[in-house]
Design a protein around this nucleic acid. Structure first.
Lengths: 224, 224
DNA sequence: CAAAAACTTAACTCACCAGTTAAGAAAAGG
DNA sequence: CCTTTTCTTAACTGGTGAGTTAAGTTTTTG
């Protein structure tokens, strides 16, 4: 049932406990403010054991940051779906809910705060996070243009506009002011407004798509 | 010619030197990573003197952050000017050039990185920086709506959209990746695209305003 | 079950840092 | 010019943190 020896299983489980503790402590205190003793304490073991797993504070920090960020790689499953508005709306919501989670914001604050001291960190994050999402968005935008539903010259700009319209305001605010839990209602306000502006500027059939958006909005409001 | 005694002048000059050194060291190392010895060294004096001016590391940090941020409060001087497109373009450029300066980005990284440890800091910054600019933008948007040049329901959303369309993409990237100096050409790309999208979505006379924008773009390109 | 191997820990080292103290230098006032 | 006051500094203190060591414990293996 299990290939791993008891030792190996223990080791893996502890490694995960350490990484979990590290993310918590680093996010709370920043790299210089975090203490290896505190991380060890929160992981439920002692410092020399911690050094068995990671050879230095920096190594731990980098390993923690390199750990895959689940939930980031969301994409458009059904590219053939003709209801572009519904797809955009669904994408916007799932992305917003990922990115605005408190732990995710903490991590973003940490990355930004340490970007100067760890230049690779920020670059890698940008490449493996936002840039991936952007690529997915660009592919989607181009598919919609080919299907005659969107009109634009530069797919990258269109994708970035979509992102910026939907998330930049609430996210910037949340980065500056922690513990402001962002309500679903306020996210809805940004998402629907952003999408409306996006469709007005980019849709091949703006009136039709805006009507579709309003219908979707009513449907969702009724759900809650 | 000068009301201040030699002592008082020296004191002020030193205080400024300390604040300059502090901003540099804190931005480079973060709050916990910055050392008072290093700040004293960079300010060209010794630690006890530093403590004569600021009673603790926290006090220095907060004083430094409270120092007025010049260049942030830009606004629309000539509200009566009928050329809305030119005004938006000028605002976009002056704001972008302020916000994308390396020192300004360093400060933003520091604020975001320490927001969790200093909750007031992030709140105060948001209130005295971005929110002020936003208020100015909102007032402008409303004036343009009253003049029949823009169409929207929610002035705050319109203002935030403008901001997000123009700056969110390059700024987020710059926050993650320091020392990427952002060329005027790439800023121009974002600004002109953002403004185009904004006008398509919000202008009362989109075709006319877009033509105006293109003319302004050509004029500026010719200048360089 | 006993010996070896791997793992874990309490206690330590060394460096650094925030904040203080005591003694010396400079300015102000008579 | 000399005394007083203020400013400045080199040297110190107490505490903490990264990383190590040596001794004890658990797991594996014959």
């Amino acid at each position: 049932m299990n290939q791993l020896s008891r030792r190996e299983r223990n080791r893996l489980e502890r490694q995960n406990r350490i990484l979990d503790a590290a993310i918590k402590v680093f996010a709370e205190a920043g790299f210089p403010g975090a203490s290896m003793d505190e991380i060890a304490r929160q992981a439920g073991l002692s410092k020399p054991t911690l050094y068995q797993y990671f050879t230095s504070k920096e190594a731990l920090f980098e390993a923690m940051m390199a750990a895959p960020r689940e939930g980031m790689m969301l994409t458009f499953d059904d590219a053939a779906n003709p209801d572009m508005v519904a797809q955009l709306l669904r994408f916007a919501w799932s992305y917003a809910e990922t990115v605005m989670r408190p732990e995710f914001l903490s991590l973003a604050r940490l990355i930004i705060g340490e970007a100067q001291r760890f230049p690779d960190l920020g670059r890698d994050y940008q490449a493996s996070g936002p840039d991936q999402v952007l690529q997915g968005l660009i592919a989607f935008m181009e598919a919609q243009r080919n299907a005659g539903r969107l009109v634009f010259d530069d797919a990258e700009l269109a994708a970035e506009d979509f992102w910026g319209l939907i998330l930049s305001a609430p996210r910037n605010r949340a980065l500056h002011i922690p513990d402001t839990d962002v309500s679903r209602a306020s996210l809805a306000r940004y998402i629907h407004n952003g999408l409306r502006v996006f469709l007005r500027a980019y849709s091949a059939q703006p009136d039709q798509d805006l009507a579709r958006l309003d219908r979707a909005t009513v449907a969702e409001t009724a759900q809650n």
